[in-house]
Design a protein around this nucleic acid. Structure first.
Lengths: 157, 157
DNA sequence: TATTGTTATACTCTATAACTATA
DNA sequence: TATAGTTATAGAGTATAACAATA
């Protein structure tokens, strides 16, 4: 966990310094820039964010910054389709090399090839296992964000 | 990173539900409960927190909750010695089993013994490597919290 | 001069609940 | 009745800068 914390911190520093992005924002941008077309908010949220309102907030920031666009879906009038703008793509492209560099320097460099491969295998399996875990509290009004979101627990007080 | 995110989220849920603790607070408590005597704020911060004020804030919460005590160090009048109270130890003991259970269920269960061992080896080495990395911006007024803290970058604006 | 720690402050982010609108 | 998304709001947490006190 300490290694992860150090990595996350460094990654966030780089993203903030070179693109004024949080890691969550970078992930959202990466999803959109990597995918072909548009995505709904729900699709976009999956695995990145644990509440709907959290995504709305982040999407609001990204839209305000001109990195994404939101519009009604023609298929489903309830859904919002999110698209990366050229500016968004440009920012992603501008930030990505530094991100790769940090990741490499911090995580990949000290590992031998077979170790890195093994790490990937292990963590992929762990991820799949976690996604398949039944949520602890399957509270109502809290569905539609995938397994990760559904794992959200009861209110604090 | 997704696996880590899912794990962290579940761990935080458990700690919040069973002990009303954040993960940072749990880590601080764990350090103190595990160590024999008292620790200075600086020692306590190492590897857990990235700013002095952040630790002061968290220590304030823990003290207010009666989980720790802060007092002047006899050796160094600048330093603050932090001690776990009985209540703090009790809370840690109460929360720990659930923490172990979550960790086991989410992370350990899907792995074979040798895989878990390998994961430990790999991540330990990664951690050591990261700790040894030279900070990107060795800004002044930002020392004394160990390598992790020193990695802190320039102000945002 | 450097280090330890605190405080004031500003800001980011997250989450719950309530709500609108569509399927 | 369920789902998609937004809004209002409250609260937790973090970090910078300025500061006081000691080494």
């Amino acid at each position: 966990m300490e290694a992860v914390s150090l990595l996350q911190h460094q990654v966030e520093q780089q993203l903030r310094a070179e693109g004024d992005l949080s890691y969550v924002q970078f992930q959202l941008l990466a999803r959109l820039a990597t995918s072909h077309g548009r995505m709904t908010m729900t699709q976009l949220a999956d695995g990145v964010v644990y509440s709907r309102s959290g995504l709305t907030y982040q999407a609001g920031l990204l839209e305000e910054a001109g990195l994404i666009t939101r519009g009604r879906s023609p298929d489903d009038d309830r859904a919002t389709l999110v698209t990366v703008t050229d500016k968004g793509r440009a920012l992603f492209d501008r930030v990505l090399p530094g991100h790769v560099q940090v990741t490499r320097r911090m995580l990949f460099d000290p590992l031998a090839d077979d170790e890195l491969e093994r790490l990937g295998d292990i963590m992929s399996r762990v991820r799949d296992h976690m996604r398949a875990q039944p949520p602890r509290s399957a509270a109502r009004g809290n569905r539609g964000l995938g397994p990760a979101a559904r794992a959200k627990a009861a209110p604090r007080e």
